[in-house]
Structures are given as structure tokens and as C-alpha cells.
């Protein structure tokens, strides 16, 4: 009974947080549909024209195409590099394993800005910055360790006896990988890929530091649009922000179908 006030306080704070959140999102969405809105409770008319204008003016089709290409490339490459690494790390104990583990942990632990600036410097030196390849390379830096980190526990829980049994039945290494391990790994790979996809689409700093005018992803061109506001009406920037959030929300809903976010850390079975 003593805990009562704390319970109410918790829910109250949560509701206050949610109300503010709804207000924040609502203000942007409302403004993106507003004819004009200045100093009143609600705008004095609604229109959908800003979406069309934003789509044309910011060449969102190109931007979305770039975003899509970068994200897919990052997902594919990070899975191709990360899954074999995770397999070796999960199955073998070898000298220097600790060091390698730390090296794969650091890019996730470091704020992107700290290694992003030296990385951008190196990429500029090799004339990679500003191109799509540079943006993909920069985004791979946190993506590969992320795949390794999520896949290692996943592989650890696959019984090694299955592999041994397959080998006893005459399967060679290639067959073990393609016909035994791959099907078992598909759910994990899918979960890791979707999370990498969400992270890459949302990654601002690294893309911002390395992108050129033709290799901007949606977040970066949204930022550019916002910081050069004043030329174009605010509603256009807002409708672009709504498009960005809409696509992120779609990705996240898909992601939550495949992954239970609370199981990423402990892998403990949640009864719910």
C-alpha cells in the first residue's frame, strides 16, 4: 500500500511525457498540412500541397533512392563481413580474442563524431568522401560491429552437435554452412539486418560528415533543408520531416515484428 503514490507518480510522469511527445509530433504534422499558421491555436486552413512541393523542390525521389541504395549496400556488406566473424568469435577461443572483441565494441561505444572526423579526413585523402562509396564505407563502421555483436550470442546458442552430426553424415564444410547453419541463422540475420537498416537510415553524423551533394541520405538533406530554411516555407521542411518519420516508423514496425527489443541484451526468455 505504501507504494501507491509512487505508482501514481510514475504513470503521471509517463502520461506527461507522452502528452508532450504527442504535442511535439502533432505540431510538426499539423504545420505540414497548414495553409499558414502564425500565432494561433490552429492554422487557418489545411492543404496537402506542401508535400508535393517538398517532393519536387528537394528532389526527394533522388534522395530516397540514395538512402535506399546506401542502406541496402550497408546491410548486405555488413552481414557478409559480420556473420563469418561472429561465427569464428562464437565457436573458437584463440589468443587475441579479447583484443578483437574490444575492437568490435569500440565503434559502437564511441560517439560517431569522435571517429567520424578522422574517418572523413582519411576518406577525403583518398578522394572517397562525397561519393556514395564513401558514405557506405563510413556507415559500415558501426554496422559491421553491430552485426557481430548481435549475431555472436545467436550463434553461440546453436548446438555444435548439429554441425558434428552433419559432418558425420558426410557433409563437407560448404554444405554445413549452406544447408545446416544458414537456415538456422536466417532469423538472426534478418533481425540484425533490419536493425542495421533502421540505424543506417537514421544515422546522421557519419553521413553528414562524408556525404556530397549527390550522396545525401534523407536525414542529411532534411537537416540541410532545415538549416537553410527561410528561403522556403517552414511547412515544406515539416512535410519532409513527416515523410522521414513515416518511413522510419514503417521500418520500426516491421523490425518489431521480427525482433523483441528487450531480448537483444540478455537473451532471457520473457514470459510475455
Amino acid at each position: 500500500m505504501k507504494a501507491r503514490p509512487i505508482v501514481w507518480l510514475t504513470w503521471g510522469a509517463l502520461i506527461f511525457f507522452m502528452l508532450n511527445l504527442v504535442g511535439i509530433v502533432g505540431a510538426v504534422v499539423t504545420n505540414s498540412f497548414a495553409e499558414s499558421w502564425f500565432g494561433t491555436w490552429l492554422p487557418n486552413g489545411y492543404t496537402g500541397k506542401w508535400y508535393g512541393e517538398a517532393w519536387r523542390d528537394y528532389r526527394l525521389l533522388d534522395v530516397l533512392a540514395v538512402t535506399f541504395q546506401v542502406a541496402i549496400a550497408v546491410v548486405v556488406i555488413s552481414v557478409l563481413i559480420g556473420v563469418p566473424t561472429a561465427y569464428a568469435l562464437a565457436r573458437r577461443n584463440f589468443p587475441g580474442k579479447k583484443l578483437l572483441n574490444v575492437l568490435f565494441l569500440l565503434p559502437i561505444l564511441m560517439p560517431p563524431m569522435t571517429y567520424g572526423i578522422p574517418l572523413a579526413t582519411v576518406l577525403y585523402k583518398f578522394h572517397l568522401a562525397g561519393s556514395m562509396a564513401g558514405v557506405i564505407a563510413a556507415n559500415l563502421v558501426p554496422a559491421v560491429p553491430f552485426v557481430v555483436l548481435t549475431m555472436t550470442p545467436f550463434i553461440e546458442q546453436i548446438d555444435t552437435k548439429i554441425e558434428s552430426a552433419a559432418r558425420m553424415c558426410g557433409a563437407n564444410t560448404v554444405a554445413i554452412f549452406t544447408r545446416v547453419l544458414a537456415p538456422l541463422l536466417v532469423p538472426g540475420i534478418l533481425a540484425a539486418s533490419i536493425l542495421v537498416l533502421v540505424r543506417t537510415v537514421g544515422m546522421f553524423e557519419l553521413t553528414f560528415l562524408t556525404a556530397g551533394p549527390t550522396s545525401q541520405t534523407l536525414v542529411v538533406s532534411l537537416y540541410e533543408a532545415m538549416s537553410s530554411a527561410g528561403i522556403r516555407p517552414q511547412q515544406m521542411v515539416d512535410s519532409m520531416a513527416v515523410i522521414y518519420t513515416g518511413s522510419m516508423l514503417l521500418l520500426l514496425v516491421i523490425a518489431l515484428r521480427f525482433v523483441n527489443p528487450t531480448q537483444l541484451v540478455t537473451r532471457l526468455k520473457d514470459p510475455a
Partner: peptide, 12 residues
């Protein structure tokens, strides 16, 4: 809120 991203949050 993860999906909002820093830019929409700032705008909002």
C-alpha cells in the same frame, strides 16, 4: 521516439 530522429524532434 527512436523513429523521430533528431531533426523532427528539433522541429517539433
Amino acid at each position: 521516439p527512436i523513429t523521430l530522429g533528431t531533426v523532427l524532434t528539433a522541429e517539433g
